[in-house]
Lab assay of single mutants.
Amino acid sequence: ESETFDVELTKNVQGLGITIAGYIGDKKLEPSGIFVKSITKSSAVEHDGRIQIGDQIIAVDGTNLQGFTNQQAVEVLRHTGQTVLLTLMRRG
């Protein structure tokens, strides 16, 4: 069981404050995608409180990250504006 949710964030001096990890899993058993690996102290993400380590980032400002490499996803996140809309999925 999984839930998908949107989080809109405004960057602070730390930026968004997440590091991400790309993961290619076994299609049947484990998900592939871009996941939140860590959250920086005092960052926008930590202050917001809704995003957790292990959440999958589905889209950034409407750009679907399906099939993106870790590096491609980093580039998408790097080129966002001051306000960012993240679409995430959390597995229950």
Score class of each variant (00 low, 15 high):
D48I: 04
R50G: 04
Q14W: 09
A21N: 09
N70M: 15
N12R: 08
T87H: 04
F35M: 02
Q72C: 07
L77A: 00
V45S: 09
D6V: 14
V45G: 08
V84H: 02
Q56D: 03
T40N: 12
Q72K: 10
L85R: 15
K37H: 08
E8N: 09
S42Q: 11
G22Q: 15
S42K: 14
F5Q: 01
L9A: 00
V84L: 06
R50E: 05
A44Y: 08
V36L: 02
D48L: 05
Q66N: 09
F5V: 04
R78H: 08
Q52V: 05
I51Q: 01
L88M: 14
N70L: 14
D61V: 00
T83D: 08
K27S: 15
D55S: 00
I24F: 12
V74L: 13
G17P: 09
T80A: 08
R50W: 01
A59K: 09
T19R: 11
Q82C: 07
V36Q: 03
G15E: 09
I58Y: 02
M89I: 11
G81T: 05
T83Q: 09
V7Y: 06
T19K: 11
A21I: 06
N64I: 08
L88I: 14
N64Y: 10
Q52K: 13
G54D: 07
R90S: 01
L9G: 03
I18G: 02
L85K: 13
V7C: 10
E75M: 04
N64G: 08
D61N: 12
G22V: 09
I34C: 06
E1M: 14
T40W: 07
T40G: 10
V36C: 04
Y23S: 13
V45Y: 06
D48Y: 03
I51P: 01
D61G: 05
L88Y: 01
T69N: 08
L29I: 13
V74G: 07
G33H: 09
V45F: 08
Y23T: 12
E46I: 08
G62N: 07
I58S: 01
D6K: 15
A21L: 05
V60N: 00
K11F: 01
G54A: 03
T10I: 09
F5Y: 10
L65V: 13
H47M: 11
D48N: 09
Q52N: 08
Q52Y: 03
G15L: 04
D61Y: 02
V76L: 14
N70Y: 15
T63S: 07
K37G: 07
H47R: 15
L86S: 00
Y23W: 10
D55P: 02
I20K: 01
L29D: 12
T63G: 03
D55C: 01
D48M: 07
A44H: 04
G54V: 00
V60P: 00
V7P: 01
T10S: 08
K27N: 12
E3Q: 13
I53G: 03
L85P: 01
G17M: 03
G49W: 00
K28C: 13
V84S: 04
D61F: 01
V7E: 04
Q71C: 08
V60E: 02
G17Q: 02
A21P: 03
G81Q: 07
R91P: 13
E3T: 15
I24M: 13
G62Y: 03
L65C: 07
T10M: 07
Q66I: 09
L9N: 02
D26I: 08
V36D: 01
I58P: 01
V76R: 13
R90Y: 02
G17R: 03
D48G: 08
Q71H: 09
A59M: 07
H47A: 13
V36Y: 13
R90E: 00
N12F: 05
I57A: 01
H79M: 12
Q72V: 04
A21S: 12
G22T: 14
Q71F: 07
L16W: 08
R91N: 12
I53L: 07
Q52S: 08
Q66L: 11
G62V: 01
Q14K: 10
E3A: 10
H79R: 11
I18S: 01
I34F: 13
S32F: 07
V45E: 08
F68L: 11
T80D: 02
H47E: 12
I53C: 10
I34M: 07
T83H: 12
A44S: 13
N70V: 15
L86K: 02
S43E: 05
Q72T: 06
K37W: 02
Q82M: 07
L9I: 15
G54L: 02
I18L: 11
Y23A: 15
D48R: 07
V76A: 11
T19L: 05
T80I: 02
E75V: 00
G54S: 02
H79P: 00
T63Q: 14
S42G: 13
V74Y: 11
F35W: 06
E75T: 09
G15A: 07
I39H: 02
R78V: 04
